[in-house]
């Protein structure tokens, strides 16, 4: 611990990142460039999110790290350990207990509060990139609010699949101004982005930070005749019976039997702790 500055990064770097975060909060959805630092983990492991968390954490904070909704994947565990070691902060798996939550691919099911910060790991921050690879041009499109291309992508989706097939990283417009990539969360989570907590997004390789302040308008793009739908599997959780949570489909045996379980492991556990029972759990009881 004493080998490192608090949370690994030196104070000057953290100040630089905080300035980028503040600018991001002042201009919701705008991608702020920042000088991303080498972190002792490979890109793709959330180095952007880690730097944002490092600049955000204080010794009093309690940190939760999730990956696809789970606290116990390799990625989540290694980031949690990293901050236990370099910042000595408390960590938790309980959403309610956390003051800073770093996430990859999910927003927790539990409603977040004003005293919480959600930090997203972002692989590709530029929502326009897939159709317009030129950075100079995408920057201009953002500054002039020329967002027709985003709908071209949705048009292509419908013409090829009969519906908007984009189910992850579904583009949103923030506060009627910037179009933003919400990182690869399922579109089921998009409506949750209008929340009480601060949302910070860090892209390490791409050197961008952006933010959504509390209670900011976040609208998923769509067509009048193909409206946005926050879809999930049409099941209840087989363990806790929740009908309102995003589910993972899990193959349970060699015969190919499947079960649906909450992707948010903490949500599922706390529901079961409160006595809720799903289909398969009932069979076990019986």
């Amino acid at each position: 611990m004493s080998n490192y500055n608090f949370a690994y990064l030196d104070e000057q770097t953290k100040r630089m990142i905080r300035r980028a975060i503040l600018k991001g909060l002042a201009v919701p959805g705008y991608q702020v460039p920042f000088a991303s630092r080498e972190m002792p983990m490979p890109y793709g492991w959330g180095t952007g999110g880690v730097q944002v968390s490092a600049a955000t954490l204080t010794p009093e904070d309690t940190l939760k790290v999730i990956d696809q909704g789970a606290d116990d994947t390799t990625n989540a565990v290694s980031i949690r350990k990293f901050f236990e070691r370099t910042a000595g902060v408390e960590t938790t798996e309980e959403t309610e207990q956390a003051s800073v939550i770093q996430t990859r691919h999910r927003i927790p099911e539990a409603k977040l509060r004003e005293d919480q910060i959600l930090v997203y790991q972002v692989p590709i921050p530029e929502p326009l990139r897939f159709l317009e690879p030129r950075e100079t041009e995408t920057r201009k499109m953002h500054s002039l609010e020329e967002y027709g291309l985003m709908h071209v992508k949705l048009y292509e989706d419908i013409s090829q699949h009969g519906a908007i097939a984009t189910s992850y990283a579904y583009p949103v417009k923030v506060e009627d101004r910037y179009v933003m990539d919400p990182s690869p969360i399922p579109k089921f989570d998009n409506p949750k982005m209008e929340m009480a907590a601060i949302q910070l997004f860090g892209a390490g390789r791409e050197q961008r930070i952006y933010a959504v302040p509390p209670y900011t308008k976040v609208v998923s793009l769509d067509f009048e005749d193909y409206p946005f739908e926050a879809t999930k599997a049409e099941h209840a959780c087989d363990l806790c019976g929740a009908e309102d949570s995003y589910l993972d489909e899990v193959i349970v045996d060699d015969a190919g039997n499947r079960m649906f379980v909450c992707s948010d492991t903490d949500y599922c556990r706390s529901r079961r702790g409160a006595g809720h029972v799903g289909r398969l759990a009932q069979e076990e009881v019986a």
Binding site: L131, G148, H151, Y155, S159, Q160, D222, F223, D225, Y226
Partner: peptide, 27 residues
Amino acid sequence: LRTSVSAGGNIGERLMAVGDRHYGNIR
């Protein structure tokens, strides 16, 4: 032209750029 986009999407782009948000109309 946008070579990675269908013919329909190529024609529809300008309509969407000026705010048409009805897939059926655009198509």
